[in-house]
């Protein structure tokens, strides 16, 4: 498949200081009917790093996140203009297979949403429908590796046949991350992945995010600025549909250049 080959090329280690971006968003506008939700956004996502999208409610951060794997396609009044490329390939090109795209760009949602099936089947489901493997043994390996990478294996290895919904909230969220990993994505989108979790479960997921960036590119939308500061290397601040400022997380949180960023992160505008 086209996308696949392109990705293989760009994931080669790039020795330069600023690596080739894996996702490039160019002059992008998003409309919900008449209302414009994203205005002229340009952003480049660095591979193998965590990029945080922050901003007040309704600023467009989740909308943009959902554009990156075409989750907005299911909303009939939603219209996307401009160009969004994954490893150089336009993801809105007519020939793109959306299912294949979402395999490359996985997603984890705010509320853990495991399937009402066993832990094993939750993780195995993606690889199965994508035809990644046909052998039972191979499937078991994929499930184990995915659960290990999601930091859940030790906790669930003796009860893989039990329902995923029976796990705690934090475990369920890590199960969803394992499910996303199982189909070998390049990018994982996370929309408020910890907002339904307690502080300990949040800390576990944050540790996991930090480990995952070695293998994946992660984009996280969060309302918690502390979380953005803790887990991300790059931060983008959105306000009223515009990308106000994009920089290293350190710079954004210690010395933002734009007044709107400053006012938002210090708690002066909501």
């Amino acid at each position: 498949m086209n996308i696949q080959t392109h990705i293989e090329e760009t994931v080669m280690p790039v020795p330069s200081a600023s690596p080739t971006p894996i996702i490039e968003v160019r002059d992008t506008q998003v409309f919900y009917g008449e209302k414009q939700a994203i205005i002229d956004v340009n952003v480049e996502i660095e591979p193998n790093a965590v990029t945080a999208f922050i901003g007040p409610s309704g600023c467009g951060k989740s909308t943009l996140l959902r554009c990156l794997n075409r989750m907005n396609d299911v909303i009939p009044i939603c219209r996307v203009e401009g160009s969004i490329t994954l490893a150089g390939q336009d993801i809105y090109a007519p020939e793109v297979d959306v299912v294949a795209l979402r395999q490359k760009v996985g997603m984890v949602f705010q509320k853990p949403n495991p399937f009402p099936k066993s832990i094993f089947e939750n993780v195995a489901y993606g690889p199965k429908i994508n035809g990644l493997t046909k052998h039972k043994l191979e499937m078991e390996e994929i499930v184990e590796t995915s659960l290990k990478r999601a930091g859940l294996w030790e906790e669930v290895k003796d009860r893989l046949d039990q329902p995923g919904t029976g796990l705690s909230g934090g475990q369920q969220q890590r199960l969803c991350i394992a499910r996303a990993i199982a189909v070998q994505p390049k990018v994982i989108l996370m929309d408020e992945p910890c907002s339904a979790l307690d502080p300990i479960a949040t800390a576990t997921v944050e540790t996991l995010i930090d480990e995952l960036r070695e293998k994946y590119t992660i984009i996280i939308v969060t309302h918690s600025m502390q979380q953005a500061a803790r887990v991300s290397q790059k931060t983008a601040f959105f306000h009223l549909g515009e990308l106000v400022e994009f920089g290293t997380t350190e710079q954004i949180f210690s010395a933002p250049r734009q007044e709107r960023t400053q006012n938002y992160i210090t708690g002066r505008i909501g």
Binding site: M225, Q226, F253, S254, I265, T266
Partner: peptide, 9 residues
């Protein structure tokens, strides 16, 4: 309060 940006400085 975990101050940020100018507040932190």
């Amino acid at each position: 309060r975990q101050p940020l940006a100018s507040d932190l400085r």
